[in-house]
Write a protein that binds this DNA or RNA. Structure first.
Ligand code: FES
Ligand code: FES
Lengths: 155, 155
DNA sequence: TAAACTAGGACTAGTTTAGTACTATATGGG
DNA sequence: CCCATATAGTACTAAACTAGTCCTAGTTTA
């Protein structure tokens, strides 16, 4: 019903691997080997992640990839945005695609609010947590506090 | 990044229309006319909604569709499930599709938890609110209270 | 210069989504 | 009884998107 693409999932796996050893520089091949993903796929994803500024890259011999910033500062929302782009929950409500109904439609706005709420939630989830590394630090996870999904109605 | 299908959006529009006049029996043609959607599409969606128990149908002359229960008792989650089925956020984590990684992957579980949290949220949102009818009643909307998206970590 | 990397884009196959059409079935009125 | 008007179900087509592969170009170091 709500879905993220397989590639986005893979990207998270890759980022999680990078997060586990923030100092180490990985080549696409190494990451592919350690995550058991196909090399071209990993390569493609890393390129995309680099373009969006989530990883740093070094070219040439002994080149490779590195997390651009601490895992705690990378959110689930950023990862999703990097790969799928800022697609809205509904097609109508997004950008300027004019839905034929639009005028008679109160629903679009409602979905849009739900969408925003979900986004806000995803911004609170860091790569640290996705990678299962959150327990180590003493800081309280964003997941530990209940946070409000939808603040005040009406939609 | 997170998307519901256009058809699901249409279905919501149709349901919202039904919710606005709960007593009235609409034919597929009438609903299509009032929502400015194509008749075959509306018809198809109504059939689906009937199969999932969200609307009641009457066949034959003077037949038509009716909301199966008060709009306040129909949730966004139910609507999404009715049309897209219970698709999980990630493909891996869902059902029994074995991801090639699986063992080395902590990420799947994390996404799954996020998914559950979102579902729980969507169960709190009723058709009443989606249709923009929530303001009329005196009852406090589920959206008015902040509710916890993710309770206790770690993922 | 040669080897080991990343950058970028083009391309293909597969799957999903959206939309349409057609047949069968139920109801009620003339 | 028969027909008009509805829904029920299924099957089909076209378009869009996803996943994955491949190839060429550019960059760095030994
Ligand atoms: S604006 Fe497109 S369905 Fe509401
Ligand atoms: S189980 Fe499939 S990517 Fe994690």
């Amino acid at each position: 019903m709500l879905r993220i693409s397989k590639l986005t999932d893979y990207a998270t796996v890759i980022l999680a691997r990078l997060a586990a050893e923030p100092e180490r520089r990985f080549t696409a091949g190494q990451l592919a080997g350690e995550t058991r993903l196909a090399v071209p796929t990993v390569s493609k994803l890393l390129k995309q992640l680099h373009r969006r500024g989530l990883v740093l890259s070094t070219r040439g011999l002994h080149g490779g990839y590195l997390l651009a910033r601490p895992a705690a500062q990378i959110t689930a929302a950023q990862i999703l945005d990097a790969l799928d782009g800022p697609v809205a929950l509904t097609e109508c409500a997004s950008s300027e695609s004019h839905c034929c109904i639009e005028s008679s439609c109160l629903v679009g706005r409602a979905w849009q609010r739900v969408n925003l709420a979900i986004r806000r939630s995803l911004q609170e989830i860091t790569l640290l947590e996705l990678a299962g590394l959150s327990g180590s630090g003493g800081h309280p996870s964003a997941l530990d506090r209940g946070f409000p999904l939808l603040k005040r109605g009406p939609l």
